[in-house]
Design a protein around this nucleic acid. Structure first.
Lengths: 242, 242
DNA sequence: CGATCAATTGACTTAGCTCAAAGCATGTGG
DNA sequence: CCACATGCTTTGAGCTAAGTCAATTGATCG
């Protein structure tokens, strides 16, 4: 089960601290923020169960996770809202519509904050607050852009887009060739793109035939030309993935 | 052509001022914000051309508008990113990916702020900054929820969802019956949902046959049971539309 | 090394797109 | 005020991309 890390806590917190805007010199703010957050280690496929009473902000210190909507009764369709990796700051709102859970794709280290108190403290340090705001405006913009694009894109374009996005986020690669391991299953990919696993698989083989992608085992992929994939995906320039 | 309103400016500004968080008693902040914003009146189908150099925050004081992605060369596919109505606060980022324009669907009144300076000033009043942050976190959450839902929804569900969303935003109605006028064309609806005009039309007739929708002329619609539509759309509870 | 579950591949069905024609609104000129 | 013209909308007839069902292959773990 998910365990509250006491010994490993330090390194998670340090990772979080390093992500804060540094120019401010407001060390105390960082201290106060760290004081209200706690570190959590999730093993593969463990969940962060949402607190029904308050919103949370979660910083991903390491590993990878998916944000899934768990629509009440149905067990079948696990809607994947987004994937998150080390360095991401996620807002997990309490159940307003449905029931969102953060599920670990690999072992992962999180720092969890109660959103209200986090903002109360951040309010004392406008630079921090503004940095969070800037991040979320950007994220909103990207999310909307992607949302619209998705509505108009073919399966192949979605897969290409997904791969480019992952190359950026997992391998820090936006052009040329790169190889990395996908932490999520075909089902997760499909659920996040609105496709079936079969279609994901078929499109992947298609890209393999064209020579843009190679795969090894379940998770390892090798993209021979990220820029070409991006073009295929219909990306006119460069929004980072959701 | 779009004209900078001088006489009507007052009422736009007042509308904006009224939207600010009132508890703070920081009247001067509101004054300073108003000082850097300017009022703009757009006639139907006029555009707010984006400043290539800086991001903008736009407050919609009245009327309705669509945010379109104008992908460079192509004139054909006007991707509609979102619809916006009176009371909305929109962030129009400068061209990072593509070229976004705010186009008036009806005559509309806007208050335009340079984002940087707006935030500089808001930074002095944490309550305002936090309110903007809260709005955008919420908007992000909704956008993501909708994005994922869209990927999995049928044409009919998308149309139903769209209608429910419009009922909420245009008529303030979340259940029961309601009637209102849609300010956008079928093409705009289709472009925003990733459907063709034909499909939009067909699904609308379908809903008309089932007795959930009546239409009159091009724009007037009458929903007999918003809750039923929401159920049909697969909304498990209540996210407001993007 | 076998059991199990994920991924692939194949055959078939269907929702939604494309192409094409006909109906209505809305607006303009006589 | 009516007639006409234009452009939005509706409706129809195929076609194609993606989903569904089903069987096979391949990977991972005990």
């Amino acid at each position: 089960m998910a365990t509250i890390s006491t010994f490993f806590g330090h390194e998670c917190m340090e990772a979080f601290r390093a992500a804060l805007p540094i120019g401010t010199g407001a060390q105390p703010t960082a201290d106060r923020l760290c004081a209200i957050g706690y570190c959590l280690h999730l093993a593969r496929s463990e969940e962060l169960v949402p607190d029904p009473h308050e919103d949370r902000l979660v910083y991903v210190a390491g590993g990878s996770a998916k944000l899934v909507a768990h629509p009440g009764s149905e067990a079948g369709s696990g809607q994947v809202l987004a994937f998150h990796f080390a360095g991401d700051m996620i807002s997990v709102l309490r159940q307003i519509d449905g029931d969102f859970r953060l599920v670990a794709l690999t072992d992962c280290d999180l720092v969890v904050f109660p959103a209200e108190r986090f903002l109360d403290i951040a309010q004392g340090d406008p630079a921090v607050l503004r940095s969070v705001l800037a991040r979320s405006l950007q994220a909103l913009h990207r999310s909307r852009t992607r949302m619209m694009q998705m509505g108009h894109k073919s399966a192949q374009q979605r897969i290409a887009d997904f791969l480019v996005s992952m190359a950026e986020r997992l391998a820090g690669c936006t052009t040329g060739a790169c190889a990395f391991a996908l932490p999520m299953s075909r089902r997760d990919i499909g659920d996040s793109l609105g496709l079936t696993i079969e279609t994901v698989s078929r499109q992947l083989t298609e890209l393999r035939v064209v020579g843009l992608v190679e795969t090894e085992g379940r998770s390892k992929v090798c993209l021979s030309d990220v820029a070409a994939l991006a073009r295929l995906a219909g990306r006119h320039s460069r929004p980072a993935g959701a």
